[in-house]
Computed example of a mutant assay.
Amino acid sequence: MSDSGGPPDVVVVGAGIVGCATAWELARRGASVTLVDRGEVSGGTTGLGEGNVLVSDKDSGPELDLAVLGRAMYDELESLGDGAARVRRKGALIVHPDAETWALEPARAERLRAAGVECELVDGADVRALEPNLTGPLHGALLVGGDLQCDPRGLARALAREAQALGARVRTQTDVARVQGNGIVLAGGERIDADAVVLAAGPWSRSLAEGAGVALPLEPRKGQLTRLRLPQPDETWLRHKVVDGSYLLSVTSAATGVEVSTVVETTADGHLIVGSSRERVGFDASVDEALVERMVARAARIAPGVAALKRDATWVGFRPWLPDHLPAIGEASAVPGLWLATGHEGAGVVLGPITGRLIADALTGTPPALDLAPFSPDRFADGA
């Protein structure tokens, strides 16, 4: 425990991108930090995603404001750890094969511009000039040139190394049994005392929060991704991140059944990743082969060439989902000293580093760059 008035002692639970960023930001401010994870650094949700840093899939409100700040941080993070983030500034195209979603896009584009996002509407013919392999029927697209992609596992591990270089302790393969008082108790009974605990364990945060007395209606939202191989690796087969306009409706839906839309893009080694599915079925890690076929067929509506490609691998990840589609960021008033940094759903890569910065600022007495009130964990308390 720190002496009164000095930098705090903080335990960060969870070594995904949110937890690693939080540990790094706290260590930079002189805090004594212990980063704990039951697995390896970036061994969970962070390392299974596409690494997208997007504002193009957002709409006006607190999440967009957070994403704008988060994307801007990559100007700084890009060089961290000798370029471990492997940033690809490819931009994003929100494409619209359906007239219904295209009709809504001009108004959303204006809301994005009002939040400081540079974007432009592109008609169907110009979309094909940008992306010759998008030969399916399209009404048009929204082009957001500032969106990018990174290697989230590489970035998280670089953040952990940087935190260690500043004195942070990183304890992997260390299971946390519970948060208790101003500290944590490990599965073997060891206690780590601290001035504050930051719970950043993604979809596994709920049991620890509720065990400490903090209501958190967090669920794992399962998603599948499929990797397809091009006959010859070609990073330019798709130059942008391509997202079906219906994806925005899928993300914000609270349905428990399967939600399917299309995201498709090239990987850094010149092949393709196809998503996206969402379903609230707990921690079911099984691959649904019928759903894979459905996702690929849907992507082929936009890019017909996808249908002929050989499938290389399919895997499952779990997004930390909260009912109001906003993360929980801040101190829980029911348990002073317990801070939450979770619930980013599928946007953890863009929102994770800025979440770590905002948490570190608030914990060390620096006014955060963004009002944290909309993200308060207290919004889920009884009677909130």
Score class of each variant (00 low, 15 high):
Gly145Ala: 11
Ala107Gly: 13
Pro152Asp: 08
Thr252Asn: 14
Ala200Cys: 10
Leu138Thr: 02
Leu138Asp: 03
Val292Gly: 07
Glu25Tyr: 02
Trp237Pro: 05
Leu225Ser: 03
Ala103Trp: 11
Ala328Phe: 00
Ala107Trp: 12
Ala209Asp: 10
Thr34Ala: 09
Trp237Arg: 04
Pro137Leu: 03
Ile359His: 00
Leu64Glu: 06
Ala27Asn: 03
Glu100Trp: 13
Glu110Leu: 10
Cys119His: 02
Asp378Ser: 09
Val242Lys: 07
Ala384Ser: 15
Gly44Asp: 06
Val306Ile: 15
Ile359Val: 14
Asp98Val: 01
Thr314Met: 07
Pro368Ile: 08
Glu259Lys: 14
Gly44Val: 00
Ser79Ala: 15
Thr364Trp: 04
Arg88Trp: 04
Ala85Ser: 15
Lys310Phe: 02
Ala384Thr: 11
Val263Leu: 15
Asp269His: 10
Asp126Cys: 07
Val185Tyr: 00
Val11Arg: 00
Glu190Gly: 10
Leu225Ala: 13
Ala194Ser: 14
Pro62Arg: 08
Ser60Val: 10
Trp315Pro: 07
Ala362Gly: 04
Val296Pro: 00
Asp37Cys: 06
Glu345Leu: 06
Leu121Trp: 09
Arg278Gly: 13
Pro217Gly: 08
Leu134Asn: 00
Phe318Arg: 01
Arg157His: 10
His325Asp: 09
Ala341Phe: 01
Gln180Asn: 11
Lys310Pro: 03
Glu50Cys: 06
Asp37Glu: 05
Ala187His: 12
Gln149Leu: 06
Pro106Arg: 11
Val176Asp: 03
Pro336Leu: 04
Gly81Asn: 11
Gly47Tyr: 03
His344Ile: 03
Asp195Trp: 11
Gly5Arg: 15
Glu131Thr: 05
Val198His: 07
Ser60Ile: 08
Leu272Asn: 01
Glu50Asn: 07
Lys222Asn: 10
Leu143Ala: 05
Thr236Pro: 01
Pro320Lys: 04
Ala334Leu: 06
Pro320Asp: 07
Val127Glu: 07
Val185His: 00
Thr355Asn: 02
Leu230Val: 12
His271Arg: 11
Pro106Asn: 10
Ala115Ser: 08
Gln173Thr: 12
Gly51Cys: 02
Asp65Arg: 10
Ser286Val: 12
Ala103Thr: 15
Ala168Ile: 12
Arg38Asn: 02
Trp315Met: 08
Asp284Gln: 13
Ala194Ile: 09
Pro97Leu: 04
Asp75Gly: 15
Asn52Trp: 09
Gly356His: 05
Arg294Gln: 15
Arg227Ala: 14
Ile184Glu: 04
Glu289Asp: 14
Asp284Ser: 12
Val258Asn: 12
Val198Ser: 03
Asn52Cys: 04
Val242Met: 12
Val281Asn: 05
